[in-house]
Design a protein around this nucleic acid. Structure first.
Lengths: 183, 183
DNA sequence: ACCTGAACACCGTTCAAGT
DNA sequence: ACCTGAACACCGTTCAAGT
């Protein structure tokens, strides 16, 4: 990549990060190009779709979350590990309002720029789930796709302002449904 | 209302019903006015906001769902009654793709045209829940607002095409979390 | 190679002018 | 009293023209 192109690319990412965090991940791409002081075509050249921009912006976060799952695999209490990871992934989507909808549509769309990242995340979750299941802590009749559904549902709810005061309770309720009742 | 105004009003509702069912509840209002053969200002005169149009379109459905809850109150098995009502409300939102987001934002926005309808629905659900709780069938630590959250989460998930194949299982999982485990 | 911004086809919303 | 549609301020996306 030419030096000026690289500079534009990095600067667009910086500005996009700011604008998305201010306005959510459905902010205007035109506005991002404008605030970056760059032609609209330049944004489209570097990021042909909104998903491509999101992917470039969030790739490292996705990788961190997947790495975090592997790290948690090592902990003794595998139920607590899964619960902790769920909490972290919901916190992440909450910091990136509007990101869960493109993630959910990307996970079965192999053409989406976000596809690989979402699959990585689902796989990481599935590993934590499998360990909790092997240990008899999590319901055996669940798979990674269903865990991803529950994450998506919780993430979407948390995007709703009217839900804020009940977020912790609903998290506990839905996350709790994953585990086997101890008696 | 003048006769011509009334005719436009009714015709707009008919066309909106068709367009929303074809394209979801975020379809273009311009398109609706166009297909109704009516000036754009006429649509705005009758329905000042998208919520006002949705409300006019869905009011009778909301009332039916609330009435259905009262009807189900009479059944013997109060847990089955709640479960059945949840299924019907999710089926309803599924038929009206895109309706759950405005409902969730309306429920704490007293200015929204959809506010009253959503509160009615939440109250109806809360009554079914209270009866199941009194009977020891549903968790005691739940209220109507939380039940509405669970409905919203399920409804949003069901709007996602990638979720379709797991809809029944996730419904069972989340709805199941409402009830007390029998052992 | 890369960048620019006009052009195109859309939105939602408002409001002066018409009947 | 009601209707119309132009006007305004936005979008996303493409692409000819420039450097």
């Amino acid at each position: 990549m030419r030096a000026d192109a690289k500079k534009n690319y990095e600067h667009l990412l910086d500005v996009a990060r700011t604008v998305f965090s201010e306005q959510g991940n459905d902010a205007s791409l035109r506005d991002i190009a404008r605030r970056a002081g760059v032609g609209l075509g330049t944004l489209y050249r570097h990021f042909p779709t909104r998903e491509a921009l999101l992917e470039a912006l969030l790739r490292s976060s996705f990788e961190s979350l997947a790495a975090r799952a592997d790290e948690l695999q090592a902990s003794q209490d595998c139920a607590a590990a899964l619960l902790e990871w769920l909490q972290e992934i919901i916190a992440f989507t909450h910091e990136h309002r509007g990101v869960i909808a493109p993630m959910v549509s990307a996970i079965e769309d192999h053409e989406s720029a976000l596809h690989a990242s979402c699959v990585t995340l689902r796989t990481a979750g599935a590993r934590l789930l499998a360990r909790a299941q092997a240990d008899g802590k999590a319901r055996a009749d669940l798979d990674g796709a269903e865990l991803f559904d529950l994450i998506a549902a919780l993430a979407w709810l948390r995007e709703q302002p009217s839900h804020a005061s009940r977020a912790d309770r609903i998290f506990g309720l839905i996350a709790g449904a994953i585990f086997v009742r101890q008696s």
